[in-house]
Nucleic acid binder design. Structure first.
Lengths: 234, 234
DNA sequence: CGTATTTTTGACTTGACTCAAAGCAGGTGG
DNA sequence: CCACCTGCTTTGAGTCAAGTCAAAAATACG
């Protein structure tokens, strides 16, 4: 989800839902000993039902997480960039509740659960960071629940593009020019839309001059208009 | 959300999304010192923007939590019964992110945040219980995200009724005969439906002989058929 | 270079929304 | 005790945003 390094920073940060990862990756180098793991595009980081051994911090690349029901219904639950923590949703369970796949070649830091818990017991600051990270995840997902539930298709897509832009910017990339690593189907699943609807929404945004789209490549042309769009009822 | 004590327990427990509160209320009597607080129906437990001082455990009654955007869009994020923990989603923030209102006369245990954090730092078991509770909340909300996103109206309503039944059963009440404490509008907001659609879904379920509805009073007549309904794609 | 995957566009259908109105319970005050 | 609110629920009729189905276009890949 990046590829284009930024020089031009965009307007002011906005109350769009950012993944506010709170859990600073510094922990992985200090208090905690994480083991590196490389994943090729399309490879699973973990699958639902696999025994839960560790949590993961994205270091390079992009991971999508998803949840499926026994009868085949499925939804993407998130797209995760550098610094994001995965697997916290399965703590206290014997196995993973959902799936996680690499959307591009990625590098992950794996933190054995026992180590994490022991570290938290030893170091109150790490403990606080962990709690804050889970709390932030709860807030972030609720925010998406609100957006997905109350906004029409076009504004949902706009919200996602702005969110990705902000998160990439926080990582030192351009907020206005980036390459999507996920398919239209993935986006649709996340936003609760059909892939055709995602395409049409992007086409409309382009026709209005708000963005430029060419397959996976996105350029945000008028970010203030985009932000005005999503902050508006109807 | 109760009123009817149960003698007849229903069939086997099912993998419907239960609030698996993990955080045993025993902590509030032992390690932690909670102060009691009574709330009349309709009163707020907290409002968005209020300074965050404590987390809350429902002891008696029913609380609805919700999240609103600046431009007036709003969604109910959950209905909370005895033993459920509220406020964990705002840890690490200076103020509450959402609202919480009593749906009936309720009693709440308030746990001052500083006490909770200090207790967790002192007692690894409490620490683990807290982490497990937040993890369970993440799982639970994702499960609802899946159901709300992939099921048609009628099946969403059925899922909610089964979920409430299971949770009430876990508290010693009837799983098949209970009184809703929330309005159709609340249910609709939670399930991402209009209140009229909720009504129509309930009517259909009644016409099929699966439930009996009369305003707020619900009787589940054929719980296995209901469960079969929600576990089926289309 | 052919095959598979993803994206785009069009035409048609539909489940849920919107608007409107009537029915029902509960509470209040005369 | 009844009449009158007021808020909640139910039902109906018409509309629309998004879904479905189908096919072509563009790109990636072995």
């Amino acid at each position: 989800m990046h590829a284009i390094r930024s020089t031009a920073a965009t307007a002011a940060p906005l109350p769009i839902c950012t993944h506010a990862s709170a859990f600073n990756a510094d922990w992985v180098q200090g208090e905690l000993r994480g083991t590196r793991r490389k994943l090729a595009a399309g490879q699973p980081l973990y699958r639902a039902g696999q025994p839960l051994r560790a949590v993961y911090v994205v270091h390079v690349g992009c991971i999508k997480s998803s949840l499926a029901s026994s009868d085949g219904r499925e939804r993407v639950t998130g797209f995760h960039l550098r610094g994001d923590l995965l697997g916290l949703d399965s703590i206290g369970m014997p196995m993973h509740a959902g799936d996680a796949f690499a959307l591009e070649d990625s590098e992950i830091w794996e933190i054995v659960l026992a180590d994490l818990m022991a570290g938290a017991a030893r170091n109150p600051e790490l403990q606080a960071a962990l709690t804050a990270s889970m709390s932030a995840q709860l807030r972030c997902e609720r925010q998406w629940m609100l957006s997905v539930g109350t906004l029409p298709a076009e504004q949902r897509v706009a919200t996602l593009l702005l969110d990705l832009g902000l998160r990439l910017q926080a990582l030192g990339f351009s907020a206005t020019h980036f390459v999507l690593r996920m398919t239209r189907a993935d986006i649709g699943s996340f936003l609760n839309l059909q892939l055709e609807t995602v395409t049409r929404a992007m086409t409309t945004l382009r026709e209005r001059g708000l963005i430029d789209v060419s397959r996976r490549e996105i350029r945000i042309l008028d970010s203030s208009a985009l932000r005005a769009l999503v902050g508006t009822t109807h």
